[in-house]
Design a protein around this nucleic acid. Structure first.
Lengths: 225, 225
DNA sequence: TCAACATTCTATCGTTCATTAGAACATTAG
DNA sequence: CTAATGTTCTAATGAACGATAGAATGTTGA
């Protein structure tokens, strides 16, 4: 294989050029602008209004698009009209959107399958839960009776005793990932809670070994309401 | 025009999805990775080497590509193989490069700089090559690395990686007409090979647009050694 | 079980970039 | 000319991102 530095420099330069196009379509507002300009020639103020952006902002984006050669301008009096450079650009944007439609749908589906499949098989480890909580993509609920919660619980967890859960006192958005926990390995509250939540359409899992599992490894436990 | 906040939120969400694809191709190395993965399924270490990047770095980029659904993975033993998600991705990358080629004057300049007088090397069209091969008066050589040849090549072509060519491992009679090809329009292997062969007295030309150019039009591609 | 290897995860650093304010530049109307 | 309008330029800030080091994970073979 060519560790040839000349090849490398050439390739770097070449792909840097390609990336200029990619960069132009790497932001939502710019793609929306390209869509609008594909409809018809438009002024800055016009597209600014339609995209709900300040004019300055819009102007900056259009500048980037022009630097990448995707749009061209025409000046008429005080106004500047923008349009797509040619039909190939229109086709490119269209294909980008088609790709997003098919590929990202797949991503969602696969992710879902993966998560679901894993959910069936394995509860969450304390370690994994800790990581996910840091990432902020999971809500932890303590399904034991209130008193036990107050005596000690995972920091950040919500107190939602199973009784309340059954009465639907707890209704976060369906998109939210939930992790329930209770007393320990042989406590059925968490299992029941997970079953219930899944029936309602949530992605719910339970913490392995409950609160004791969390304590193991010296993790912090909060006390009080 | 709809200053309707619901419309706005919907549009923002929609274009944010599109931008995920755009973001994936907004950086030179990621486009280069997509090009490589379009040739054949590859391991992380493999593409890391070919793109002159540290493995960690490469892994991070591949992660982004996978999150956008453009590539997929397969695990075999300790190794992870990456490949394009489907043909649509290949086509998209191709179109991105074509767009860059036409829209960016700089692309032209850079290309000229490094591949001076490329057209003097008389590229052969796929159609013409096909005719000549049927007539049997030409030898086709694939100058890409062996793995890429095995992943797919023009039927009847010989695998002669440039390294071997330099070491004179390939020595047909001087009377033989040769056509070299590699990855595509921007691949320098074929150009280099043709120059080398001509210096040795052969009548050598290169296939325009390489293997992708052959594929276009639905021509058959052979797989294996 | 250990060791060796491939890859990914986590955290940090430095850079780039989107956003946005303020000033500047054109153009046209009066 | 001045004022009003439309647009761009310059600069500053904050968030996101790429690069990368170090630790962790997972897999294979001894």
């Amino acid at each position: 294989m060519p560790a040839d530095p000349v090849h490398r420099r050439f390739k770097d330069a070449l792909y840097a050029q390609f990336a200029r196009i990619g960069h132009a379509v790497s932001t939502p507002k710019r793609i929306e602008l390209l869509d609008l300009l594909g409809q018809a020639e438009r002024t800055v103020a016009d597209v600014a209004h339609q995209t709900a952006m300040p004019i300055k902002n819009t102007s900056a984006h259009l500048r980037v698009l022009r630097a990448s050669g995707l749009v061209e301008t025409r000046k008429d009096g005080p106004r500047v009209f923008y349009r797509l450079a040619d039909a190939q650009v229109h086709e490119f944007v269209r294909q980008l959107q088609a790709l997003a439609h098919t590929r990202l749908a797949d991503v969602e589906r696969v992710t879902q399958l993966y998560l679901d499949g894993r959910d069936e098989l394995e509860p969450v480890t304390a370690r994994e839960l800790e990581r996910r909580m840091r990432a902020g993509d999971v809500t932890v609920i303590d399904v034991r009776p209130r008193e036990e919660y107050e005596a000690g619980h995972i920091p950040g967890a919500l107190s939602v005793p199973v009784e309340q859960l059954k009465r639907r006192r707890f209704a976060p958005p369906l998109s939210r990932q939930l992790v329930a926990y209770c007393r320990g390995r042989y406590c059925v509250y968490a299992v029941e809670a997970v079953r219930l939540l899944r029936k309602r359409g949530y992605r719910a899992r339970r913490l392995v070994d409950g609160l004791p599992g969390w304590r193991q490894g010296g993790r912090h436990v909060a006390v009080g309401a």
